[in-house]
């Protein structure tokens, strides 16, 4: 456990998380309805817009957006801010709902590596992940218009997987290294836990 954690109470630690990670933690730990309302106000309309751009009509998108936000509440405990931003995590929930709704298929997901409800988020890792996410957003904005449009189309489900080849080649090196470090730490913790049992 990092030395920085030992000194402060749980409350103080939580307050230093990136903004949406803080709200998600409050929902997870104490079922905080006000924190959820803030998340809802920010992400609800974005999720609805994402679903409509992906081919859903307004009524279906509204219905699914509510469902996605309800899932955000229920799964808040499994959100790991050292591994993803809140927007990234909510994107994966919305995407899975879209596959279910528009394509009527199951979505095989990788084996879960949850960090567990008891674990405390590491604030420093969470803040670095936030910076990496901001840097990625900037890098995406600086891409040539043609490639940016292609990437958007890919994520709205508008490109076949053979067309997607042209949209790859993104500047993902640094964010990938951070995620890899977070995974290594998680693996390390998981193997320690299993020895203790």
């Amino acid at each position: 456990m990092p030395a920085s954690r030992g000194q402060c109470s749980v409350k103080e630690q939580v307050e230093e998380l990136p903004e949406w990670a803080l709200e998600l933690r409050q929902v997870a730990v104490s079922g905080d309805a006000a924190a959820f309302a803030r998340l809802f106000e920010h992400f609800g309309p974005r999720v609805k817009a994402f679903l409509m751009k992906s081919g859903a009509d307004a009524a279906m998108a509204e219905e699914c957006a509510q469902d996605v936000m309800a899932t955000v509440w229920h799964k808040a405990v499994s959100f790991d801010p050292a591994r993803a931003s809140a927007a990234t995590w909510i994107f994966t929930i919305a995407r899975n709902r879209r596959i279910d709704m528009l394509r009527r298929q199951r979505r095989p997901e990788p084996e879960d590596l949850t960090w567990g409800p008891e674990a405390e988020p590491d604030q420093l890792d969470a803040l670095v992940m936030q910076q990496e996410t901001a840097r990625l957003s900037q890098a995406l904005e600086q891409l040539p218009e043609k490639q940016r449009v292609l990437i958007e189309r890919a994520y709205f489900g508008d490109l076949s997987h053979s067309e997607i080849a042209e949209a790859t080649g993104l500047p993902l090196g640094t964010i990938k290294s951070r995620i890899r470090m977070a995974l290594d730490r998680l693996r390390h913790t998981m193997s320690r836990e299993s020895i203790r049992e």
Partner: peptide, 9 residues
């Protein structure tokens, strides 16, 4: 996935 998150944001 982070690219998808950036687009959603």
């Amino acid at each position: 996935d982070a690219v998808g998150g950036a687009l959603l944001e």
